[in-house]
Simulated assay, not measured.
Amino acid sequence: MENDVIIDVSGISMMFNLSNEKIDNIKEYVIKFLKRELMFNEFWALKDVSFSIKKGESVGLVGLNGSGKSTMLKVIAGVMKPTKGKVLVNGTIAPLIELGAGFDTDLSARENIYLNGAMLGFSKKQMNEKFNEIMDFAELWEFVDVAIKNFSSGMLARLGFSIATASRPDILIVDEILAVGDYKFQQKCEERINKMIEDGTTIVMVSHSIDQVKRICKKAVWLESGKVRMYGDADYVCQEYQQ
């Protein structure tokens, strides 16, 4: 990998086995599995996808539902292992891929901050230093000791984004989480992302808001049916995608 390339996606293909029959219970599934009577259809979510991202770049993935955007983010984040190809990542990743991922819903916001910090490799001392900043940004002091199973999706988004961005990772991966919550907080998130870009963080994001992609990202990857249709300047790619 070249020195300034932080993410190198090379020939990535991702196949899922989709069951084409309805099975109502585990017992029936096990019996059919042992008899080799399970029938599957192969679905290729990604097909030979290749692109590279340089350090400090902001890249948006655009495309219709089912085009492979979220799958591509999960492969980059290491959440999924591709069927074919490889991804080389040169830096620390903070993934914001699924709302509430990494949270224990029975724990409070306070407890989840320390839990997430530990998962990201931070000590309790480091999280003590970041705690007030996280809660200030999330604007959730009133609910700091409330179990997050009682939180709305917007509150979860606030907490998740605040934790993920407090550490200033090398790479921030964002999947539609900015679409959750009120407009004021979305603006606040965009401002923090832009500051992170200024400080050298690489951003890879999925958003159905083309205007948001054009505001935040310098480049865009247009995925269509699991393949790269176009990769280049965000304004140009988004313009072509919208035609």
Rank of each mutant, 00 (worst) to 15 (best):
E191H: 13
L120K: 02
V5I: 13
L140V: 12
E240A: 14
E240I: 14
N65V: 04
I148L: 01
E111S: 12
I23L: 01
M39P: 10
K84A: 11
S209P: 03
D4E: 14
G78L: 04
V204N: 00
G11M: 07
D199N: 10
V79D: 08
E37P: 00
F43A: 13
T165H: 02
I216Y: 00
F43C: 10
Q242W: 08
N65A: 05
L88D: 14
L172I: 06
R215S: 09
K124A: 12
E57P: 07
S67F: 05
M205N: 03
L107G: 10
T105L: 15
A118S: 11
A164Q: 06
M127T: 11
V49Y: 09
L73T: 15
I26D: 06
E42L: 11
M119P: 04
G232A: 10
E176I: 01
A45P: 07
H208M: 11
I6T: 00
N25Q: 00
Y29T: 14
D199W: 05
V59I: 09
L107I: 02
I134L: 13
V59A: 03
D211C: 10
N41W: 08
Y241E: 07
W44Q: 09
E111L: 01
F161I: 10
F16I: 12
M15W: 12
F137H: 03
K84F: 15
F43E: 04
E28W: 01
I171S: 13
Q239N: 15
D233N: 13
M155Y: 05
F51C: 08
K227H: 09
P169F: 08
D175A: 03
I216P: 00
I76R: 00
L96V: 08
M72C: 02
R168E: 15
T202E: 04
V174D: 07
G181P: 00
